[in-house]
Amino acid sequence: METRSLREPDGGADVWEEPGTTWERRRLGRTNLHVTRLCLGCGVLGGMPEIFGYDVAADQGVATVCRVLDSPINFLDTSAGYSAGESERRVGAAIRARGGLPGGFVVATKVDPDPVTGDFSGAQVRRSAEQSLERLGLTAFPLLYLHDPEVIGFEAAMAPGGPVEALLQLQAEGIAAHLGVAGGPIELLSAFVDTGCFDVVLTHNRYTLIDQSARVLLEHAARAGVAVVNAAPFGGGILAKGPDVARRYAYRDADVGLLGRVRWIAERCAAYRVPLGAAALRFSLREPLIASTVVGVSAPERVDQILEWARWPIPEELWEELETGGADGS
């Protein structure tokens, strides 16, 4: 595990205002969007039991998005590929139920390959975007991501007639105000940052309490003026529920060493009466190179819990113990 200082940055790292007031919104990199440091993710609320291990009913998914729209958060993340568009449908239903988006609210979604054929051509990107607009009930995207370009690779993504060219055309037409790229491999995401085509890069499962391999991407993007959005600070659940309940990290079975490290972190958090999830979330929120942190939600009460964890005070002594505990958690 890569290590770095876990201490609060100088000047007071807490970006939140006092409870009961509007949470601070900050400019998202070089875009004209202003977002909260917390973004609610909608990957699970469309229902993907094959990945997350449980399903989500449609009415629960819509109610969850309604709770997000009523919360201090103004940033929501979904994708055309989440549960074959069902996530976007539920987001759209919630937007309609609330009579439209609250002022300044930012909905980000992602273009995906055809779920049947795997086609990820420029034509498919346009189809994906058009279908997303219909499901969400929007006329344009504040932020539109290229999703998981690792499925075709950098050269194919950047080729004439490919997905990046199509995204740039959508931006030129005013359909997408800003473009982002969202994926896994750090070197690949860094290559997309270097193209100058993207204002935002989203990384997932690679900047958490137990894996900071995205640190090089955070620093590279900062030099390029590209905002970083960090998704999955709980690693798919294990850093929220603990290793005795969730035994997978980044959608794969966790090995014995990883389970041991998470158990040690959970024990140290418990010693300070800090929920494991609060420490995992605050670890991402307090990183100045991260513009916003995406946390998946699947129930209205889960939104409330995330808001509570985001405000949870973390003793300096706990950060020091987690920093010096070592990769083996001893």
Score class of each variant (00 low, 15 high):
Gln169Arg: 15
Thr208Lys: 01
Pro275Gly: 06
Met48Asp: 11
Gln169Ala: 15
Phe52Gln: 10
Arg4Asn: 11
Asp255Met: 06
Gly162Met: 02
Val295Leu: 10
Gly225Arg: 03
Pro102Arg: 09
Ala177Trp: 04
Val125Gln: 01
Asp59Cys: 10
Leu146Ile: 03
Ala63Cys: 10
Ala166Leu: 07
Ala266Phe: 04
Val107Pro: 04
Phe75Ser: 06
Gly329Val: 09
Pro185Lys: 11
Asp244Arg: 13
Leu69Met: 09
Val245Trp: 02
Pro9Thr: 11
Gly236Ile: 10
Lys241Leu: 14
Phe105Val: 06
Gly260Lys: 13
Asp148Met: 05
Ser213Asp: 12
Glu86His: 06
Arg96Phe: 06
Asp59Val: 12
Ile306Thr: 14
Ile210Asp: 12
Asp59Trp: 11
Gly237Tyr: 09
Phe283Ile: 02
Leu168Phe: 00
Arg30Thr: 15
Ser132Gln: 00
Arg302Glu: 14
Ala280Val: 01
Arg25Leu: 04
Asp77Gln: 05
Thr36Ser: 12
Leu144Arg: 08
Ala57Gln: 15
Ala58Ile: 03
Gly260Leu: 11
Ile314His: 01
Arg135Ser: 10
Leu101Ser: 04
Arg25Phe: 00
Gly325Tyr: 00
Glu155Val: 13
Ile73Tyr: 01
His220Pro: 07
Asp211Ile: 08
Gly99Ser: 12
Pro300Ile: 11
Pro149Trp: 07
Ala84Thr: 10
Gly118Phe: 05
Pro49Phe: 07
Glu320Asn: 11
Thr22Ser: 14
Glu24Met: 12
Val303Asn: 03
Arg26Glu: 12
Val151Asn: 04
Asp114Phe: 03
Met158Asp: 02
Arg37Trp: 01
Val228His: 02
Val68Trp: 01
Val106Glu: 08
Gly242Pro: 01
Ala176Arg: 10
Ser79Gln: 01
Leu138Asn: 12
Gly325Glu: 00
Gly41His: 03
Leu33Gln: 06
Arg268Ser: 07
Ala232Met: 10
Arg27Val: 05
Glu219Pro: 01
Val107Phe: 02
Cys269Lys: 07
Leu276Trp: 02
Trp16Gln: 12
Glu173Tyr: 04
Pro300Ala: 10
Ala221Arg: 05
Thr293Leu: 00
Ala231Ser: 15
Val116Tyr: 08
Arg311Pro: 02
Pro149Gln: 07
Tyr145Asp: 10
Ala93Met: 12
Gln124Lys: 12
Tyr249Ala: 04
His178Gly: 02
Tyr54Pro: 03
Ile238Ser: 09
Arg4Trp: 13
Ala123Thr: 14
Asp119Ser: 08
Gly184Met: 14
Leu189Met: 14
Trp319Asp: 08
Lys110Tyr: 12
Glu317Cys: 05
Leu202Lys: 03
Arg127Gln: 14
Arg252Gly: 01
His178Glu: 00
Glu316Gly: 13
Thr3Asp: 09
Phe192Asn: 02
Ala222Pro: 08
Ala266Glu: 14
Arg261Gln: 13
Met1Asp: 12
Thr64Pro: 03
Leu28Asp: 02
Val216Ile: 14
Cys66Glu: 15
Ala13Asn: 13
Gly29Ser: 08
Gly85Tyr: 07
Tyr249Phe: 15
Arg26Cys: 06
Gly122Phe: 09
Met1Ser: 13
Thr21Ala: 15
Asp70Asn: 09
Glu316Trp: 05
Ala123Ser: 14
Val111His: 06
Trp264Tyr: 13
Arg311Val: 07
Gln131Trp: 00
Gly225Val: 04
Thr31Cys: 08
Pro142Arg: 04
Val262Ala: 02
